[in-house]
Amino acid sequence: MLASSAVREYLTNVWDGVRTTLVGMRITGRYLLQKPITVQYPDERLPIPDRYRGIHYLEQEKCINCLACARACPIDCIEMDAIRHGKELEWVSFTLDYQKCMFCELCVYPCPKDCIHMGTEFAYVSFDRSEFVHDLLSFKGMAPDAKVRMREAKEKKALKEAAKLAAKQAKDESEGNGDGD
C-alpha cells in the first residue's frame, strides 16, 4: 500500500515535470513566433500623452512673478527674480533645479495666471550638475511689447506731465499776471 502510493507519487512527479514543462514551452514558443511588442526607441517613439509631466515650460508674458508656484513646491526648487517697473517686469531669472524637482505638478495648479506648465520633454542629460539648474525664461530683461507699453506709458505720462506743467504754468502765469496787477 505504502509502496504503491510512493510509486504513484514518483510517476506523478515525472509526469507533472514533463507536462508542465511542455505547457510552459508551448506558451514561450507561441510568443517566439509572434511579433515583439517593444519599439526601437530612438527610431520609434511611443506617443506621449498630453498630460505628461515632463520638463516645465513657462508662458513668460503671462507670468506676474507672484511666487505662488515657488511656495507650492514641496522641495523649493523654483526660484524667480524680477525687477518691478510699475506694472511691467524686468526678468532676471526663473530657475528650476531639476536635481531636486520630483515632477509632482503641484506648482502648476496654484498659478493664478495659468502660465507654468509641464511639457512632454523628459530626457534631460548633462555631464555637469550645474546645468540642471534650468532657466525657464525665454528672454531676459523686459518683453519687447512691455518695452513698447512702457515707452507708451512713459510718453503718455510725459505728455500728461507736460500738459500738467503747461497747465500749471498757464495757471502760474495767469496768477502771476494777477499778482502783477
Binding site: 500623452p49 498630460r51 505628461y52 509631466r53 509632482c104 503641484l106 495648479y109
Partner: peptide, 27 residues
C-alpha cells in the same frame, strides 16, 4: 503605467490623488 500616464502624466510616482478627491477628471 501607460494608462496612469494618460490620466495623471506620471508613470511611477503618480500623486494623482488630492486631499478631497483626485486632481483631474479622466481624459
Amino acid at each position: 503605467m501607460a494608462l496612469f500616464e494618460k490620466i495623471c502624466g506620471a508613470r511611477l510616482t503618480y500623486s494623482y490623488l488630492r486631499i478631497g478627491g483626485v486632481f483631474n477628471d479622466t481624459p
